[in-house]
Amino acid sequence: MHVLRYFCLITMHRRIIFAVATIMVALMLICGCTGTTTDPTPVEKQQLRIATTTSLYDTKLLDHLTPIFEEKYNAEVLVVSAGTGKALEYGQRGDVDVMMVHDRAREDTFIADGYGIDRRVFAYNYFVLVGPESDPAGVKAMAPEAAFTAIREKGMADKNVVFVSRGDASGTHSKEKAIWKAAGFNYSADVQGSGDWYQEAGTGMGATLTMTNEKEAYTLSDIGTYLAYKGDLKLVTLVDEGDILLNVYSVMQINPEKFPETNSTIAKDWINFLISDDIQKEIGSFGVDKYGQPLFYAAQNDWEKIGVAEAEVKNPVA
């Protein structure tokens, strides 16, 4: 009896010591995960949270630019890559400081609703219609609207003609809808759900291109992501001319009046960084060595061509 009780006491103590040790380890780990973000340097690093459209991420343009910014401003950049729709949603919820998107119409709404301010245009390129070399719908060199019409028509008759849509409310998805509209179709009635020829991927640009490649289908892509992925793809550019294919990238900060904890100072630094002369050169030359042509064009001197005000490409935000 005595022996058992003694034994129990020891094991009990051991258990308690073990439990305490476990909790301490857990706490240390938690501190390790959260605390070190503020501790490692004596001067606290500012964090900039960016929600970006997938094309700027998948092309590795942001991977190229963020180290330059981090060095210059002693900041840490956290990039969440999502379609423009999701990026705007994060912005609307105040979960990021800055958004990099490419959907003019929805940006306007976002700004009008008071969520975004200080929009600047920093880059542009073009969308392309890509598809299999065999081009079963015969759309090569057509105008974008005519090509879309042809794909829809052939797709309904021929099983081998498939169009893969981003289907994720991204900027590219918006552009695709705009082209369907320009071609005279009602998107939800005539395109979506009109047959197996039209498939929605619900994912980023890179993933959609990979999927389109597997299915030997057609898709609309920004030229940047397409070039960055081209090495792994058997898809070729079929349509690349038409005013409607213009693709304009903007950056804006979340309105600090709506979300006071937003890091507005560093957000402005990022916007001004992107439209600065040096970085505009970086953007315009990014990828030339690897792909033989730029993935993006600098917006700085082409504001007339892309139809935005000069102030929107040149004036730093204050």
């Binding site: 973000t37 950049v77 969440v80 992925y229």
Partner: peptide, 27 residues
């Protein structure tokens, strides 16, 4: 987590599963 690859270890949220998902989608 948002699958973030930041320059510091502690701010990054990229783990094995999310990285596999991303890398596969990027080919």
């Amino acid at each position: 987590g948002g699958n973030i690859a930041a320059s510091s270890f502690a701010s990054s949220t990229r783990v094995l599963t999310t990285a596999i998902s991303l890398e596969t989608s990027m080919g």
